[in-house]
Every structure is written in C-alpha cells, then in structure tokens.
Design a protein around this nucleic acid. Sequence first.
DNA 1: GTAGAACTTAGAGTGCGCTCTAAGTCAAAC
DNA 2: GTTTGACTTAGAGCGCACTCTAAGTTCTAC
Lengths: 125, 125
Amino acid sequence: MSLVHDAVSISEAAALTGLSTHALRYYEREGLMLGGVDRASSTHRRYTEADISWVVFLTKLRSTAMPIAKVREYVDLVREGEESTSARLELLLAHRANVLAQLDEITQSLAAIDYKIATYRKGNS
Amino acid sequence: MSLVHDAVSISEAAALTGLSTHALRYYEREGLMLGGVDRASSTHRRYTEADISWVVFLTKLRSTAMPIAKVREYVDLVREGEESTSARLELLLAHRANVLAQLDEITQSLAAIDYKIATYRKGNS
DNA sequence: GTAGAACTTAGAGTGCGCTCTAAGTCAAAC
DNA sequence: GTTTGACTTAGAGCGCACTCTAAGTTCTAC
C-alpha cells in the first residue's frame, strides 16, 4: 500500500495482470500504454487501477491472437479520441470475426481429437 | 494422376493439407511422419492417402496449440504400436483439457471484446 | 533430347513475442 | 546509514515453427 491510492509497483501489476514485469515494460516500450505509466516520486513505475484495467483488456486481445502490431493500431486509435470511434468499432468487429473463426477451427479439431479418443477407448487401433 | 493409385506429389499434398511444401518436409525431418514418406520411382516424395490423413490429423493437434515436441511424443507412441494405446489416450485426454481451457479463455475474451463493441455502438467512450 | 517446371538436400534466415543480462539506481527495514 | 531487494535502462538473446536459399537433380511435355 502506498500514499497514492491504488497505484501499484510493476511487480504488483504483474501479479494482477498475469504478465511478467518484462512483458509490462515491453508493452510500454511498444506504445501500448496510452499515456505512458506514471513515475510517482521516483523513476519507478506506478500502475493505476485504470492502467491495470487497460492491460487486462490488452491481454484479452492478445489471448485471442491479435498481433502486437494490430493491438498498437487499436491503441493509436484510442489515443485519437472520439473521432476514431467508428474506426475502432470496425477494427474490433473484424477481430471478432477472426475470433469466431478460431473458435470454429478449434471446435472442429476438438471433434477430431474426441473421435480419436473414442477409438482408443474402444480398443480399435 | 500417376500410375500408383492415390500417391501424390509434395505440392499436391500441400494443396490437400493446407501446409506448405516446406512445412511438409519440415514435419518429416522432425519425425512426425510415422514410417517416412515413400519415394516411389525417384527421389521425389509420394504421399499416400494414409499420409494425407495423418498430416490432416497432425494439423488438428497443431491448430489446438499442441507444440511440435508434444506432437512428436504422440507420434513416437503411435510408432510403438498396441502397447502404447493407454499412454496415447492419456496424452490426448490431457491435451483435450488444454483445448477446453483455450476455448474457455477465448470465449471469455470474446465477451470482453463484445462488451467494448457494445459501448462503441452506444457512443460511450 | 531439350526446355522448363518441380523436385531434392543441408543449412541459414525470419518474425514474433517476449525474456534475459548487465550495470547501475532507488527504497524499505533495521 | 547500511544492507537487501526491487527497480531502472538499453540492448542482446531465445524458442518456436516455420520459411527461404542455393546448388543441384529429375520429371514432363514437346
């Protein structure tokens, strides 16, 4: 706990987001942190609640296989403010289609794996 | 079409499996092809129907994020024959659990993305 | 039989997303 | 005020899964 309400160290941010401290610095270097991270009272990073929420959302994009470069594109749009809302919507809708395709492919592969599992259970080959 | 029924060239195999010819040679080098691929009447590879089906199944494992090393483990068990059936079943069941976890994570991320999409549609931030 | 396309090998190169290192600075506890 | 551990930077290194290159061989069509 620090004097600044809810601003946490990089290792606490790592624990909260599931990323490594290395990855958090990497994301910042790559320009994914909107306004950059505060350095309250020192050179040390202090992550606010908003920073954490933001990183958590980024991990949702990443866990659905959005490449870092595309994430940065999205972040740049957010930085542009109100006027980019429709562009952001478009980007997320396009990504949504990718995610549905992923779910479909994985589900089909799962069916093939389940089929194989069933053959092993029946003792056939 | 060749004299040998259903044995196709590497580029045809690539077209049939969705892999590149480079990837097909790579898989063979990595020992993923069970008995190796025939070289009927030349140094050129000839993929049988069974080879193609096998590669297709491997792509199911790969598309569900099984690392090549784990795929090789599975292939090695298949090579051992009957006696490894229960080990193969175990491996596939463990992988199945990973796949379900993936589906779960992606589905949750999709929900977060859909939520964001909804806020853009409502014109809120 | 010859041109051109497709194939062969071994091995180097690539892109991605971190991950680690080194050398140093800062903070918290005692 | 000193130790201990967390933090800082810039930049190198890594693991994965291909992907590409080069130099040469073979197949197919004419």
